[in-house]
Structure formats: structure tokens, C-alpha cells
């Protein structure tokens, strides 16, 4: 615990304006069962933060707290504070719809809607009323698909169902769908776990590019992936945050034995 405390002290040293989201003492309960124990974690602007740890360690739970996706589960209760640009997103006065427009999410399994590719991407801008004309919408759809590095593959079949794409394409479509709303933060819950190596490489490449415009938090099972795409890494174990810091440092010289063991594959 003391190591974690020093880490936070170091974090607070960096400029406050570089922090996009901050979790303070976040605990999550599923009914009687506690899944997350007082986690303190900062997410820095325009960087990729990777959450790692063995299965059931609470990393996905923490991720879902960041845009209140846990609200959809009846028995789930969150305590503590998470801020976006200094505003507590669990404040009852906060509108979850607006929050999610600013903190988007990409899921483990590609989940395109049973609509055309175009409609999948246009869905977000439509519900949020981001455009006034068809031309504007077309523009958003195209730019989102381009940013998601899938435009070239689908530009000739925008009006075919999104479910007809391959797994990797579907996931990039889902990323395009998330980008189309112009969020500030994109949360990614093991976005490559259902994909083959080639598709994974494409998505990883994409994540790296997106960093310039968005803040990204990614949950991953793969150490290599965390090492490849992220700048910051946080290690979870049994619902607690074990260690966090710069990815380079974490993978070369971790502070805790636990992290060392996990990264070198001795458990997990």
C-alpha cells in the first residue's frame, strides 16, 4: 500500500491540467459482494492507459465505472468519486447521457447494430443531434470511418449490414461508431480478445493513432499489447490497484513482486 501512496504523490506532482479523469477511493459492490476496494487512479490526457491484471481482478469493473455503464446492472453500487475534468460523474445532478457522449466505449465482443454500416456510425451523431444536414452527417460518417482505418474497406458498401463484416472489421466499425460522437475519452474493454492476430495488429495500430485526438483507457489480457500501445499501465489484483506508472518503467522495473510475477507470466 505504501508504494501505491508514493505513486499517487508522484502523480499529483504532474500538472493538474494533464489529468483527464481521476478516480478517488472507488469501491464497487455487486449486491453483498465487493468487487473493487478503494481504487485511486488518474487517467492522463491524450495518452493510452492500460489496465492489466488476472481475470476477475476488477479491471473491467473499474473501466465500466468510468462512464457509468455499471448503472445498467441493478444490483451494482459504486462509492467514492470519479471526476471528468474535475466534475464528479457520480453526482446525482449529472446527466449520464451527456457523460457517455463524452466518455465513449468499445466492447470486448464486436457488437455492431443490425443496421447498415452507415447507420451504425450515424447512430450516435443522430441521437445526440450533432448534425443539421445529411451532408454533415455523411461527412462525420466518412471521417469517423477514416479515423478508424476502415474507410477504404467499406466505402463501397456503406449500406450493407454491419453484421456482414469480418470480426476485425466489425470491431473497427464499433470504434468508428464510438468516435463519431466525438468523445473525449474512449474506453476499450479487451477490444482484441475476439480477433485474430492480423486484425489485432490493425486495431493496435489504430489505438496508437487515436491517441492524438482522444484519451484512451484500455483493458487487456495481453502483456505485449499493454506494452505496445500504452503509455501508462495500472495493475489490478483481487479488486485492488497494486501498482501504476509509466508503461516502460512497469515492464522493466516494477515496484512490486506481484507485478513482476504477473508480467513475467508466473501467474495470471
Amino acid at each position: 500500500m505504501t508504494e501505491a501512496a508514493t505513486e499517487i504523490a508522484v502523480d499529483t506532482a504532474i500538472k493538474e491540467s494533464a489529468i483527464k479523469m481521476r478516480g478517488s477511493d472507488v469501491s464497487v459492490f455487486y449486491g453483498e459482494k465487493q468487487a473493487l476496494f478503494g481504487v485511486n487512479l488518474d487517467v492522463r490526457k491524450n495518452s493510452v492507459t492500460a489496465l492489466i491484471g488476472p481475470s476477475g481482478c476488477g479491471k473491467s469493473t473499474f473501466l465500466r465505472c468510468l462512464n457509468r455503464m455499471n448503472d445498467t446492472i441493478d444490483i451494482c453500487r459504486v462509492t467514492g468519486e470519479i471526476t471528468l475534468e474535475g466534475e464528479n460523474i457520480y453526482d446525482p445532478k449529472i446527466d449520464v447521457v451527456e457523460l457517455r457522449a463524452r466518455v465513449g466505449m468499445v466492447f470486448q465482443k464486436p457488437n455492431p447494430f443490425p443496421k447498415s454500416i452507415y447507420e451504425n456510425v450515424a447512430y450516435g451523431p443522430r441521437i445526440h443531434g450533432l448534425t443539421k444536414s445529411k451532408a454533415e452527417l455523411d461527412e462525420i460518417v466518412e471521417s469517423s470511418l477514416r479515423k478508424a482505418a476502415i474507410w477504404e474497406e467499406v466505402k463501397d458498401r456503406l449500406h450493407e449490414p454491419g453484421t456482414g463484416l469480418s470480426g476485425g472489421q466489425q470491431q473497427r466499425l464499433c470504434i468508428a461508431r464510438a468516435i463519431a460522437v466525438s468523445p473525449e475519452v474512449i474506453l476499450m474493454d479487451e477490444p482484441c480478445s475476439a480477433l485474430d492476430p492480423i486484425a489485432t495488429a490493425k486495431v493496435e495500430e489504430l489505438i496508437d493513432e487515436l491517441r492524438t485526438n482522444f484519451t484512451i483507457v484500455i483493458v487487456t489480457h495481453s502483456m505485449q499489447q499493454a506494452a505496445r500501445v500504452s503509455q501508462r499501465t495500472a495493475m489490478f489484483h483481487l479488486g485492488k490497484l497494486v501498482e501504476e506508472g509509466d508503461t516502460d518503467k512497469m515492464f522493466t522495473n516494477p515496484d512490486t513482486k506481484l507485478t513482476q510475477d504477473y508480467i513475467t507470466g508466473r501467474f495470471g
Binding site: 471528468l84 475534468e85 466534475e87 460523474i89 453526482d91 445532478k93 449529472i94 446527466d95 451527456e98 457523460l99 463524452r102 445526440h128 443531434g129 450533432l130 448534425t131 443539421k132 454533415e136 462525420i140 471521417s143 466525438s182 468523445p183 473525449e184 485526438n213 482522444f214
Partner: peptide
């Protein structure tokens, strides 16, 4: 909305 689309950048502003 306009600023959001025009800038293609996250809209700032308070969640409140």
C-alpha cells in the same frame, strides 16, 4: 453541436 463538429474535437463544457 456546431463547435463539436466543426472542430472535430471534444466539446468542452461542464457536465452540469
Amino acid at each position: 453541436a456546431d463547435t463539436a463538429t466543426a472542430a472535430g474535437h471534444p466539446k468542452a463544457g461542464s457536465l452540469y
